[in-house]
Computed example of a mutant assay.
Amino acid sequence: MTSKTSSRTLFRRAALATTAVTAALVLAACGGDGSSDGAADAPAASSPASTGAHNDQDVTFAQGMIPHHQQAVEMAGMAADGASSAAVKDLAARIQKAQDPEIETMSGWLKTWGEDVPSAMPGMDHSGGHSSGGGSGMAGMMDQEDMDKLSKASGKDFDTMFLTMMIEHHEGAVEMATTEKTKGRYGPATELADAVITAQTAEIKEMNKLLGKSGA
């Protein structure tokens, strides 16, 4: 009886030891998939970041769309005092509400990627506008003269000027977003680009209708 018991105990210990060795080998094999020995945890930690892999187009999109959005928000802010139409004021408020968070989101991406975040107040910074370094990346941006005219307008003149300028501005944003959707790599950026295309295309239609009403 005692010899049987002791042989069973030995067998169990041997089985447990084999299991432990097997488990250790499996863990080592999993860790070995990483590029370095001490970084067994690194692949798991960075795998969400691999979803976040980005390319130059993603950087260009964020760096271009941030000042683009900032200018739209600046224009929308003028509507609170300048616009006479409740519909224009409502549209401007919606533009502000939608684009402010998107500016924060894209700024966060650029910081994470170690890239420069464009400075605020683009309407003031881009007084040379279209000709300086922005090119197609800044499609639809107003120059300083346009912004000055809008800031001085009021009533129905403001409404017409705001809608005309914002349609052009939105068309530029849709163009930029379409390029990102086609050539970008970073999932959240291409999703944002798709959202910009959908929302701003709808707003362009809305603004064209408002222009039609004001011109009637």
Rank of each mutant, 00 (worst) to 15 (best):
G128Y: 10
Q96G: 15
K97Y: 01
I103S: 06
M138H: 12
G140P: 02
S127Y: 08
L110V: 01
S154M: 10
Q57A: 04
I66W: 04
H130L: 04
T112P: 00
W113V: 00
A72H: 04
G82A: 13
A72Q: 03
M124Q: 11
V88P: 00
T60D: 06
G155W: 11
V59D: 03
G128F: 08
D90W: 01
V73P: 07
A98Q: 07
K152S: 13
G114R: 03
D146K: 08
A53S: 14
D100H: 06
P122C: 08
L110D: 03
G77L: 05
K97L: 08
S127E: 14
M65R: 09
P118A: 12
I95M: 08
P67T: 03
Q63V: 07
S154K: 14
Q96L: 02
S151C: 12
L150G: 05
S119W: 01
D146C: 09
A79L: 12
Q63E: 09
S154E: 12
M121Q: 14
S131R: 11
K149E: 15
R94E: 13
P101H: 12
I95L: 08
S119A: 12
G123R: 05
S151E: 14
S127V: 11
G128Q: 11
K156G: 02
M106T: 02
A139M: 02
M124G: 06
S132L: 10
M75G: 09
D116H: 04
H69R: 08
N55S: 02
K97D: 06
S131Q: 06
M78E: 09
W113R: 01
G135V: 07
L91T: 09
A72F: 04
V59F: 06
D116S: 12
Q96H: 14
E74W: 07
P101N: 13
T112Q: 10
G133H: 04
H130F: 01
G77P: 03
G133L: 05
P122Y: 02
Q57E: 09
G114A: 07
K152N: 09
M147Y: 07
V59S: 05
D148V: 10
A139T: 02
H68Q: 07
A87F: 09
G77K: 11
V117A: 03
S127Q: 15
A79Y: 11
Q144C: 12
S132Q: 10
A92V: 00
A153R: 08
D81E: 15
D56E: 13
S84L: 03
G82C: 08
G114F: 06
Q63C: 07
D81A: 14
R94V: 04
E115R: 12
D143V: 02
G140F: 02
I95E: 04
P67C: 07
D116P: 02
M78R: 10
E145A: 15
M121E: 15
E102K: 13
I95P: 01
A139R: 00
A80R: 13
V117T: 08
A80E: 15
W109K: 06
M142Y: 01
G77C: 09
Q144K: 15
V88K: 04
D125R: 13
Q99F: 12
S84W: 00
M121L: 13
S151D: 13
Q71M: 15
Q144T: 06
S107G: 10
A139I: 01
M141R: 08
M75V: 05
D125W: 10
Q144R: 15
Q71A: 11
G114E: 10
Q71N: 09
E104M: 13
L91P: 02
A98D: 07
A139Y: 00
A83S: 12
E74Q: 13
G82D: 04
N55P: 01
G123D: 05
